[in-house]
């Protein structure tokens, strides 16, 4: 009886593995099963580059996945090893797997900085060329760091709110999942408001980057706070949830929402002059595509030794304010985000 149960458990585990294995395997094969063009390295074989990103658990990470897959398709000359991960621990494991597959380079958007730094260092020490996107490691292990600037995200959007309110008004905050990204954005925003004594932050709640949670938390905050002039949300998904709560409570007049990350639906409404969304800030998930492109450009044609001698460089993805005037430059109707 006992052994039968064990057997069953094994079968289920195997089935589960197959489901997931297929999920990610399909993506990697579609990216790697490209035409066998001649190897671009001087060492005579195809470059093998790993791409490790968080799995799509909300709109923005969905965008990351989309842009990463688009960019990999553009470069069939590279052998891609592509993995998404639910959490930092899983991402660590997938890095181990990539190391075992002897990748030459790695493009990584880390779930979180601290837990992944040691593993990234291990890969770096093993001679893997590392392009780190968005969230920086706590040690200088990246050869190229393409930084997303979450503090700037917070500052720019907070400044816009202050300007829009004429330096005076009440603000509610919707935060994402507690993590560095969220903390940087919220701190950036609060720095600005600290300099604007007329702006009062009434309340701040976590809505986990999730539309439904943002909706519900905002419903409750609106009951408590009768005078609200603006809502600052740490990303556009939550901004949409906040809007639903405002409409549902009949509080959608004389108030506006500022999210961020440049979701196409929101950018469209900025472009159309919707009073609910006078602006947005960019934090494009396409930065992963930039990272992948950088990897291909930098690594192609270089020898191992040349890459080893590479001096680490830093680049910052510029965070820009989207307003009605410039919105059309940021509107990509074909993007999934």
């Amino acid at each position: 009886m006992k052994s039968r149960n064990l057997l069953k458990f094994g079968l289920i585990a195997a089935a589960a593995l197959m489901v997931f294995g297929c999920g990610s395997g399909e993506a990697s094969s579609s990216a790697s099963s490209s035409t066998p063009t001649t190897a671009p390295t001087t060492e005579g074989k195809k470059l093998k580059i790993g791409v490790s990103i968080p799995s799509a658990d909300h709109g923005w990470t969905g965008g990351v996945k989309y842009w990463a897959e688009q960019e990999m398709k553009k470069h069939p000359e590279i052998e891609w090893v592509y993995q998404t991960a639910d959490n930092p621990a899983k991402q660590n494991e997938s890095l181990d797997a990539m190391l075992a597959q002897k990748i030459d380079g790695l493009v990584i958007l880390a779930h979180a900085s601290e837990p992944l730094t040691p593993k990234a260092k291990e890969l770096h020490d093993a001679g893997v060329f590392i392009i780190n996107v968005d969230r920086g490691f706590t040690e200088p292990v990246a050869d190229i760091f393409l930084a997303g600037d979450n503090k700037a995200f917070g500052r720019i959007s907070a400044e816009f709110i202050a300007k829009q309110l004429g330096g005076k008004g009440n603000v509610l905050i919707l935060e994402g999942v507690a993590c560095n990204v969220n903390t940087d954005r919220v701190e950036g925003a609060k720095e600005i408001w600290a300099k604007n004594p007329g702006i009062k932050v009434l309340d701040s709640q976590q809505a986990d980057w999730n539309q439904q949670k943002a909706f519900e938390k905002m419903q409750t905050m609106l009951v408590k706070h009768k005078e609200v002039n603006a809502i600052w949300a740490a990303d556009d998904d939550m901004a949409l949830g906040a809007e639903k709560a405002l409409k549902e409570a009949g509080r959608d007049k004389n108030i506006f929402i500022l999210g961020g990350a440049g979701m196409k639906d929101i950018v469209k409404r900025v472009m159309d002059g919707d009073p609910m969304f006078p602006g947005d800030v960019t934090y494009p998930p396409s930065m992963i595509a930039q990272g992948i492109e950088l990897a291909v450009k930098t690594m192609t044609g270089k020898t191992k030794a040349e890459l080893k001698a590479w001096k680490p460089t830093n680049e910052v993805v510029k965070i820009e304010l989207i307003e009605k005037a410039n919105a059309k430059d940021f509107y990509f109707p074909d993007s999934i985000y």
């Binding site: 289920i12 589960a16 489901v19 997931f20 969905g62 996945k65 539309q211 999934i336």
Partner: peptide, 25 residues
């Protein structure tokens, strides 16, 4: 066992939802 069978569902159904939509909302 219900715990195991539905645990498989817990991971499987979510994955199916993501696959059907390519993770888009």
């Amino acid at each position: 066992a219900p715990f195991v069978a539905t645990l498989a569902g817990l991971v499987g159904f979510r994955s199916l939802a993501l696959a059907l939509t390519d993770a888009r909302s």
